Measured scan of single mutants.
Amino acid sequence: LNLKQAKEEAIKELVDAGIAEKYIKLIANAKTVEGVWTLKDEILTFTV
């Protein structure tokens, strides 16, 4: 999975969960695949 694909998957998951745009922007700015997954997990843990 490359960075672009990771971001697309994570953003789709966050949108489906009804997460606010400000958190989705954090994913869009992530620099690594690991960073994308870590941010996604943290956002889902603390906002859902």
Rank of each mutant, 00 (worst) to 15 (best):
V36Q: 01
K40G: 01
V15H: 10
A20C: 09
T32A: 02
G18A: 04
T47G: 14
A17K: 12
L3R: 01
T38K: 15
A17Q: 07
F46W: 15
G18R: 05
L39H: 02
E13L: 12
T45A: 15
V15L: 14
K25P: 03
L44C: 05
E21N: 08
V48I: 12
I43E: 01
T45F: 11
I19F: 07
I43K: 00
L44D: 02
E42C: 15
T45C: 13
A10V: 06
N29Q: 12
I27H: 00
E34T: 07
I19R: 03
V33A: 04
N29A: 12
K22L: 08
V33K: 03
E34V: 07
K7E: 01
L1W: 09
K25V: 13
W37S: 06
L44E: 03
I19E: 01
T45Q: 14
E8T: 08
E8M: 12
Q5M: 12
G18V: 02
A30L: 06
I24R: 05
L39N: 01
K12R: 12
K25R: 13
T45S: 15
Y23W: 14
E9P: 00
L1A: 10
L14R: 00
K7D: 00
N2V: 11
W37I: 08
D16T: 11
T32C: 03
Q5D: 06
A20L: 08
V15Q: 14
I43P: 00
N29G: 10
E9Q: 15
E34Q: 09
T47D: 07
I27R: 00
A30H: 02
A10S: 03
E42Y: 15
K7V: 07
K25A: 13
V48N: 13
G18Q: 05
V33Y: 04
I43C: 03
T45K: 15
K31L: 13
T38L: 14
L26Y: 06
V33Q: 03
I24D: 01
K25Y: 10
L44H: 03
T38Q: 15
A17I: 07
L39Y: 04
K7I: 12
T45G: 14
L3Q: 01
I43W: 03
A6N: 03
K25N: 09
E34S: 07
V48D: 10
G18I: 03
K31P: 06
E8G: 05
K40S: 04
Y23I: 04
L14V: 02
K4N: 08
E21K: 09
L44T: 04
I24V: 07
K22G: 07
V33S: 03
T32F: 02
D41I: 14
E9W: 14
I24Q: 06
E21H: 10
Q5I: 11
D41P: 01
I11K: 05
L26Q: 06
V48L: 12
L26E: 05
E13G: 05
V48C: 14
D16W: 09
A28Y: 15
E34Y: 07
N29E: 12
T32W: 03
E42K: 15
G35S: 13
N2Y: 11
K25Q: 12
A30Q: 08
K7F: 04
K7C: 04
N2P: 09
A10M: 03
I27D: 00
E42P: 00
I11D: 00
T47F: 15
L1D: 10
I24Y: 10
G35M: 15
L3V: 05
E8S: 08
G18M: 05
E13N: 06
L26K: 05
D41T: 11
E9F: 13
K31W: 07
I19Q: 02
V36M: 03
E8V: 09
L26W: 11
V48A: 14
L14E: 00
V33M: 06
L44M: 09
K40Q: 05
K22N: 07
E8H: 07
D41L: 12
G18T: 02
I24C: 06
V15F: 07
V36T: 03
V48S: 13
L44F: 07
L14W: 01
T38Y: 13
I19P: 00
I11V: 08
L26S: 04
W37R: 10
I19G: 02
K12C: 06
A6C: 06
I11R: 06
N2H: 12
E13I: 14
K25T: 08
Q5A: 10
T47K: 10
E42I: 15
I43R: 00
V36H: 01
W37Q: 11
K40A: 06
E42T: 09
G35A: 15
L26A: 06
E8Y: 10
N2C: 09
F46Y: 12
F46G: 10
L3I: 06
T45W: 13
I11H: 03
A20K: 07
N29H: 10
T47E: 08
L14A: 03
A10I: 04
V36F: 02
I24K: 03
D16Y: 11
K40W: 06
E21D: 10
L14H: 01
L3D: 00
Y23P: 00
V36G: 00
A20Q: 09
E13H: 08
I27N: 00
E9C: 11
F46L: 13
A6W: 04
L1G: 08
D41K: 12
A10L: 04
V15W: 08
T32S: 08
K31C: 10
K31Q: 13
K31T: 14
T32G: 02
I19S: 04
K22T: 08
I19M: 06
A6Q: 04
L44G: 02
I24E: 02
A30N: 01
L14G: 00
E42A: 14
K12M: 06
K40N: 02
E34A: 07
V36S: 01
D41Y: 13
L14P: 00
L1I: 11
L14T: 01
I43N: 00
K7H: 03
D16A: 15
A28R: 14
K31D: 11
Q5N: 08
E21P: 11
G18S: 04
E13T: 08
Q5Y: 08
K40P: 00
V48Q: 13
N2R: 14
V36D: 00
K22D: 07
T32H: 03
K12L: 06
K31F: 06
T45N: 14
A20E: 12
I43V: 05
L44A: 04
Q5S: 07
A6V: 08
F46P: 04
A6G: 01
A20H: 10
Q5R: 12
N29L: 13
K22F: 12
N29W: 09
T38H: 14
I24H: 07
N29V: 07
G35C: 15
I24N: 02
E9I: 14
A6E: 03
E9R: 14
L26M: 11
E21R: 10
L44R: 03
E34R: 06
L26R: 06
G35L: 13
A6I: 06
E13P: 01
K25L: 13
V33N: 02
G35W: 10
K12N: 06
N29R: 11
L3A: 02
D16M: 15
